[in-house]
């Protein structure tokens, strides 16, 4: 039977995965110190060690978690999410939308049909925005990389602050009643009444979705991960320890707005930016400033704004960027203050 193969293979791979992951550090040390026979402690050796250890670690984490995320996501279609959000009161709606933004499959190329599908079936504008902010900002690649390179605490902080920003910003946009800044044709378009029956999926189909997600996402981001970690590895060995303190350290009050200002037009996916941020922190950048920089790069991207221009008038796009950027700065200052 088909499902046998689909279920047995991951079960067999799991222990292999675990053993490799568990012994990655000794394997790395062994291949560098013994096989290559490099001298310990030199800049080159430590840069290489950083790369050879982090690269497989991050890729293995990505493959494993994206596999499960792919399976979980097969339960959350945009259609189902819309059904949940229809007719919800604003605040509850904002919270739900932001959380659903994490689990619903989202790609910026689908932002327009998604926006139209939400707004026209009566999901309030502010609630739709909560979704649109959370979906790209809190994506699985960002969270996995944060977990891999900083540990679960930072990953959790990122998720919680991202959610807070998405909920609050969406709620504020809803309160401001900006519906007149949505392009006029949006509310005139009628969506068709195609039947909404969900695809019936067997467990083996969902597992296949998991495989496909791994193939698609890891196939796309590995190169960014490699470049990000290579830059990180170079800086790890060659950049002086306190290099970033004056620029992105806690005491530099201007560092937070500056990071956001630089981060918004910068467009990179999470896979490339997290390894670089990990080195910024190692070299003395503070957590709040780095978090703000990362959120600005990942959460607000120029290509997505250009896509959204089709359905939103410019003042609404600017308000949207302004409110989210403001939220990110508050997070930055807050974390610099606490830690």
């Amino acid at each position: 039977m088909n499902w046998n193969k689909n279920i047995v293979i991951p079960l067999l791979l799991l222990p292999v995965w675990y053993l490799t992951y568990h012994y990655l550090q000794p394997i790395t040390d062994w291949s560098i110190d013994i096989v290559l026979g490099l001298e310990k402690g030199t800049r080159f050796t430590e840069s290489l060690r950083f790369f050879i250890f982090e690269m497989p670690k991050v890729l293995m984490l990505l493959a494993l978690i994206i596999f499960f995320v792919g399976i979980i996501r097969s339960y959350f279609s945009p259609e189902r999410t819309r059904k949940i959000l229809e007719g919800k009161s604003t605040f509850t709606g904002n919270i739900l939308a932001a959380m659903l933004g994490i689990v619903t499959p989202f790609c910026s190329c689908s932002a327009i049909p998604l926006f139209l599908g939400f707004v026209e079936s009566g999901v309030p504008l502010g609630v739709t925005f909560s979704f649109l902010i959370a979906a790209p900002m809190i994506n699985e690649v960002a969270v996995i990389l944060l977990f891999g390179m900083f540990g679960w605490k930072v990953a959790l902080i990122y998720i919680l602050t991202g959610l807070t920003i998405a909920i609050t910003a969406g709620w504020v946009i809803g309160k401001l009643k900006l519906e007149h800044w949505v392009q006029d044709w949006v509310y005139q378009t009628k969506i068709g009444n195609n039947d909404e029956s969900e695809e019936k999926l067997k467990l083996s189909d969902r597992i296949r979705f998991g495989y496909n997600a791994v193939k698609e996402i890891v196939g796309k981001v590995w190169i960014y991960v490699a470049v990000g970690i290579a830059v990180g590895a170079g800086a790890h060995g060659y950049v002086p320890q306190d290099f970033m303190v004056s620029l992105m350290g806690k005491s530099a009050w201007y560092s937070v707005p500056l990071s956001v200002l630089i981060g918004v037009p910068l467009y990179s996916n999470a896979a490339g930016i997290v390894p670089i941020v990990s080195v910024l922190i190692e070299k003395g950048a503070s957590l709040g400033t780095s978090l703000a920089f990362m959120m600005a790069v990942i959460g607000l991207s120029l290509p997505e704004m250009i896509i959204l221009k089709k359905v939103l008038k410019l003042p609404l796009i600017l308000t949207f960027i302004g409110i989210v950027a403001f939220g990110i700065m508050i997070v930055g200052y807050l974390f610099n203050f606490i830690f």
Binding site: S110, P113, L116, G117, N193, K310
Partner: peptide, 12 residues
């Protein structure tokens, strides 16, 4: 996009 929306889909 207007034609696409006639089919009531939200992901392409």
């Amino acid at each position: 996009i207007v034609d696409i929306m006639k089919y009531n889909i939200m992901s392409t």
